[in-house]
Design a protein around this nucleic acid. Structure first.
Lengths: 177, 177
DNA sequence: TCTTGCATGTAACTCGTTACATGATTTG
DNA sequence: CAAATCATGTAACGAGTTACATGCAAGA
């Protein structure tokens, strides 16, 4: 039950249309939660029906016409409940370690270059995050919201560092052997 | 499409019944991929129907009687194809960073103790993994399969270290004010 | 016989993915 | 007006979650 809450958060940060949300899920929000436009439109429909958000009034509502949403008080309350909820960590869902374990059984085949490719992708993402950190949080006084956003970004940084560290060693050890 | 391949890998490592697989998905395999018994039985049915695995012959096949499966040659070939496939990394799917970002909008409420709780859970898991490393890989000559298994374990270790590092700093910075 | 644990399943629902369909607006 | 782009959606399916149903076997 995370996508509706991700959408509520995004809409509280800034009221948006479905396509704008989709773009934001490809950028900032997308760094730690992904969603396609199909998921987003489906979820917007549900959230509107259950009275957590509403479409802003517009001239001629019709298919293909831009439709902007904002969060209603009940939506904000639901988001608060979600933040306060106690919820256990989920296990990872990247299939790469699984593929490595499979390679332990059927042989490494051509997996090492794939490990190296993933290492490069994670490294690129790490550099990108570090760049955001420099550019968007250049020191000095921060509001609480900014401090929290910086922490979220650093979460991404620590995770990517974990991947890079692991994959570097993996390529190193398997590549030479 | 990862669960069927996780099951094929597990069955190649050791032919098992559905319940045994479930237990293994709560232990070693479960450290990087989770599955409930319902998922597993459903998937075993599909894999058997498509000729990738078969049930070992038993005396009286009946509901409630143990049923053991093994991988057929076609199943092994499918697993090889999967290992060789090129597949991009998936973004994380733990909702905690999302909840922190939501807290940036609706206020921290009671989230810091929850962050501390997650830090402790990840730390406990990290200790567990490090214990496995000491106990199951005590140095000396390793087969290729063992080297790969050790790498997978170290992947888990690096990820957990990432979580612990992040959550420690988060609690530290937010807890004090 | 009753309970407990082992073991295999069904059903219903939600969430995520892929492919496709359709209308509105802008710009060459 | 043609093409590109903006924008909203449908349909079908696969994967994950939760609740429940059923049967077998061993020991108190």
């Amino acid at each position: 039950m995370s996508l509706p809450h991700a959408i509520l958060t995004a809409l509280l940060e800034k009221p948006s249309s479905g396509l704008e949300l989709t773009r934001r899920f490809d950028r900032s929000i997308g760094y730690f939660w992904s969603a396609t436009h199909q998921q987003i439109y489906r979820e917007l429909g549900k959230l509107e029906e259950s009275g957590l958000i509403r479409a802003l009034p517009s001239e001629v509502p019709a298919r293909g016409r831009r439709k902007e949403y904002e969060v209603l008080p009940e939506g904000r309350r639901e988001l608060c409940r979600w933040v306060e909820r106690r919820e256990d960590p989920k296990v990872g869902r990247d299939p790469l370690p699984l593929r490595l374990r499979a390679a332990g059984v059927v042989g490494l085949r051509n997996l090492v270059p794939e490990l190296a490719r993933h290492r490069d992708l994670h490294l690129a993402r790490l550099r990108e995050y570090e760049e955001f950190e420099r550019r968007d949080f250049p020191g000095g006084a921060l509001t609480e919201q900014q401090r929290v956003q910086l922490l979220v970004l650093r979460g991404g940084i620590d995770m990517e560092r974990g991947w890079v560290s692991w994959l570097t060693r993996a390529v190193d050890e398997l590549g030479g052997g």
